[in-house]
Design a protein around this nucleic acid. Structure first.
Lengths: 385, 385
DNA sequence: TGACTTTGTATATTGGTTAAACAAAGTTTT
DNA sequence: AAAACTTTGTTTAACCAATATACAAAGTCA
């Protein structure tokens, strides 16, 4: 939304700039923050003083001199509060207790036996309560809860989550009324993208495409360093991109959807002789050199490459990160995927583009979900011209 | 880029906000601008006074009273300066002289007999000089030149334009040194998107996908009201999206590219018995009911629908505008296109999404190119939180 | 005619950044 | 070791944009 500007806004912008500069570059001195941001030394001093009294920044004594007075070292106080990050999967609920810098303090898992809302909510609430109880004492306590869900999300509402059978669930409102803490709800791929962007394979990337390949395919799109959710929160539903105009019929009503060829959905294809039906088991067989499994992974890799090429042509990202359950199979997918992308992309893309697999692995989504809550707490206001 | 904030920035932001509020809502009074923006009446008065003395805003006497003192009506002064918009096509150069509100004052065409850079530059320069000579006297004169080119552009450089045989042409630098006026270079589809966004079928849309279907297919992507160019300016090269994994080989090195099935490239397909090879001629035959032509347009429409569906799933735009030469064939493409999109998109997309054809027709790109120059002159700074 | 409304301006206040001077605490040179 | 220089961080006064408030101007309505 467009806002008017006044001195209060000026202060907000500069304070946010200083806070995030310290967060990303600690340990730093006031002088270096002044250099890096371009703000006057006096301004930095004043705002740092406020940040210190808010306990978001701490002073950690003198550092090394570089030919003059020793600098006073500043740190971002990641222990000023905690957040809870949650990933809701089809058969499992994972939750972490994190500090404000994405550091995991506690981790809890819980199997889900059903998907009806009351049951899932009960499990979520009990797992959240357990983590809250374990939170270390801190100035702000629990400052937020972030949830990643396998479905489309708009403004805190789960519009549709086919694998859970959910539709129009006001998850944010429900959890906020239970815990009286700000709650952020994100699509699972979007949360994963946030995780990799801030703590994983994609730090400081401006235009990132995170592809979550598991039971389906979803993408988290980062544009200009920020999550792009589209007009109604449906952006990134790339699994239903057609890659075969007259291909297999899909449950979505279309044909030839990408995820029919490049996700775990392929494990149920007819005519296959796979020794298992989950990625982690298949990975074990691949390690032992089972030919059927190797071939199948190669095929998935190639089809992943086709879809990835399409997305590259549309988005021209700096980096692509492959995450989700299938990222476990990187050793067998990576080669074919990169080969197909190299064969099919326009020559200009090849120069700059990098393709990596998730660095946070299965934790990317929970950490990213938690980080959404952190950013909601810290705020991040900027000026674009 | 991230910027620090001070009072000068505050003023810039608010002045820009007021200017664009007047531009988009004229005629308006100071009081209404104050209401609409949320800025204090005094602030509006001060900044409007400056805008008036800069001749960007004019006072047009009293308006109707609504029960009190008559308001003083303000207008955006579109005549404060002029811009030149240029579209470079394979066989043609089109240029317009516009006022600051996209109003076309003069229009010139010129056939291109060759594509070598010196020849094209000569034509461009002579056409620009001719329009400059015709520009009406105004406070600021010619404030910029905007060019739309059929190729990929990054930061004023034409990276690659296959249909012209251009590579790494520093077009902005060349034109700026010739005319000593700011020059903006944009991809043709991006310029078209700007045109439709500001003056055509997509006014005030936040997330727009403009699809330029002609000799190939390119897309202009508007995200959050702004052009998205990607990491290196290659975003929107959607014509090379694969829609048939093992389809026809394409000159780009890939297979099954969208534009092989849904652009004018199909006119040269083997086994076809089309009576012509250009869209405008084929449209004439379609009007007369020629079956072969009708069938072919239907096929193009269907394939357009497949690609459009893919883009919808990725971007979740509010609106899709189909432009380019093929938009002439709307009566025959529109039905099949919309049918395929309805069949293949996820049900949730259908509710909100609109698909339109270009309203500016073949002028969209020139007008959009000119408007890029206008925005460069006026500036547009905003705050995002 | 008088009360009320609406529009736009003038004035004093507030509160942020900034340049410049300064104080403090170090290193380097002589 | 003393003097000169560097670096860091704070203090001070000045500047300036938005704002609330009061006010003036110009209308409507009963």
């Amino acid at each position: 939304m467009r806002v008017t500007a006044d001195q209060a806004l000026v202060k907000k912008i500069n304070k946010s700039l200083i806070l995030h500069t310290i967060r990303m570059n600690a340990p730093v001195s006031r002088a270096r923050v002044s250099e890096m941001t371009g703000l006057n030394k006096a301004t930095v001093s004043n705002l740092v003083a406020e940040l210190c009294s808010q306990e978001l920044v701490t002073e950690a004594g003198p550092g090394e001199s570089s030919g003059g007075r020793k600098p006073l070292i500043l740190h971002f106080n990641a222990a000023a509060g905690s957040v809870i990050g949650i990933e809701l999967r089809v058969k499992q609920l994972t939750a972490v207790l994190c500090d404000l810098d994405g550091g995991v303090l506690q981790e809890v898992d819980c199997r889900l036996e059903a998907h009806d809302l009351p049951y899932v909510l009960e499990q979520m609430k009990s797992i959240i309560s357990a983590l809250i109880a374990q939170a270390p004492p801190s100035p702000y306590g629990i400052v937020g809860i972030g949830v990643g869900v396998p479905g489309m999300v708009d403004d805190g509402v789960v519009l549709f989550a086919p694998n859970l059978g959910w539709e129009m669930v006001e998850l944010r409102a429900i959890l906020e009324s239970s815990f009286e803490v700000p709650v952020t709800i994100d699509n699972e791929a979007n949360a994963g993208a946030q995780g990799e962007l801030n703590f994983g394979a994609a730090r400081d990337v401006r235009h990132l495409l995170y592809i979550s390949a598991g039971s389906g395919i979803g993408s988290g799109i980062i544009i200009g360093g920020e999550l792009y959710k589209g007009a109604r929160g449906y952006a990134g539903e790339t699994g239903h991109m057609t890659i075969e105009a007259e291909g297999k019929p899909c449950s979505c009503g279309s044909r030839g959807c990408w995820e029919l060829y490049a996700s775990e959905k392929t494990y149920d294809n007819q005519g296959l002789t796979l020794p298992a039906r989950t990625t982690s088991e298949l990975v074990r067989h691949a390690i032992q050199g089972q030919e059927d499994v190797l071939n199948h992974f190669a095929s998935i890799g190639e089809y992943l490459g086709i879809g990835v090429t399409n997305l590259i042509n549309s988005f021209n990202p700096e980096l692509i990160v492959i995450g989700g359950a299938l990222s476990e199979a990187e050793p067998w997918l990576g080669g074919p995927l990169r080969r197909v992308v190299a064969e099919r992309t326009l020559p200009y893309h090849k120069q700059q583009l990098e393709i990596t697999f998730s660095r946070l692995g299965s934790r990317g989504t929970v950490i990213g979900a938690g980080f959404s809550a952190v950013m909601h707490f810290l705020g991040n206001i900027r000026v674009t011209l």
